[in-house]
Design a protein around this nucleic acid. Structure first.
Lengths: 129, 129
DNA sequence: CCGATATTTAACTAAATGGTTAATTAACCA
DNA sequence: TGGTTAATTAACCATTTAGTTAAATATCGG
């Protein structure tokens, strides 16, 4: 998985890393700032590694300030990610529409109760249709 | 990594799986349809596994039609993913805006040449330097 | 220079990922 | 019924991931 987009999605596929990005969205923070909320759950080197994943994905840049490493969020790779997802927007808006449609239907037809009920509903493992 | 959002991003973090979604965005397709473009690079069971990842992430649903398994794209999980990313939009538009700003500036102020140039520009977070 | 603080590196481990080949299941069709 | 097609499952393997502890590096501050 070497392409940029995969790396971006991969980096986002972890709640710790997303939380770190959320923190960085509030402003620069050094490593121990970023680590603080997680030090009960994991060690500092674990944080360093997560940060490295974010850096490799280009989502975070690190600079130097004495012994500190102030980190900065770089949103650029997220643009390509949203651009990719944008192509699929219709596929969730469509289903929401259908949900709305469905809700209208059920509320409207509340009188027309229990018509057909025992048509093979479950797995119907044996055959098709 | 058990949360839905992580699973969604994880599923998207692979070009084969994204290509399968792209194909499904054109309409239903059964497993061998989906596999066809990749059978030179990988085996059918590999495709089955990728498909399973997409199913587990809720991005694809599979039904039965005789020996075929028609697959359908379900965009719903992508909504949460884009919603998440939406919070960061400013972080890529910011840089693009600054680019636009910059472009306006240079073209507009082409007469007013080189005014102030060396005012501390960076973050200068801690202190040093 | 010394000790403390901030962070990384090394070495290791367990589990997940992405792939393989071979075998199995299921349904069609002639 | 038997052969063919569609797809999954099993068993296995290599690599990556996510974590650990312990040691190393670098910089500040007195």
């Amino acid at each position: 998985m070497h392409d940029q987009l995969s790396q971006t999605f991969q980096a986002l596929a972890d709640p710790t890393r997303r939380a770190m990005l959320a923190k960085l969205s509030l402003g620069e923070a050094n490593v121990s700032d970023l680590a603080k909320p997680f030090l009960k759950e994991m060690s500092l080197p674990a944080i360093t590694k997560h940060l490295k994943v974010l850096e490799n994905a280009g989502l975070v840049t690190k600079s130097r300030d004495a012994q500190y490493r102030p980190c900065k969020l770089n949103g650029a790779p997220l643009k390509d990610a949203t651009d990719w997802m944008e192509h699929y927007r219709i596929f969730w808006e469509a289903s929401l529409d259908r949900l709305g449609e469905y809700l209208k239907t059920v509320t409207a037809k509340e009188k027309e109760t229990t018509k057909k009920k025992k048509t093979a509903k479950g797995k119907n493992h044996g055959r098709k249709k």
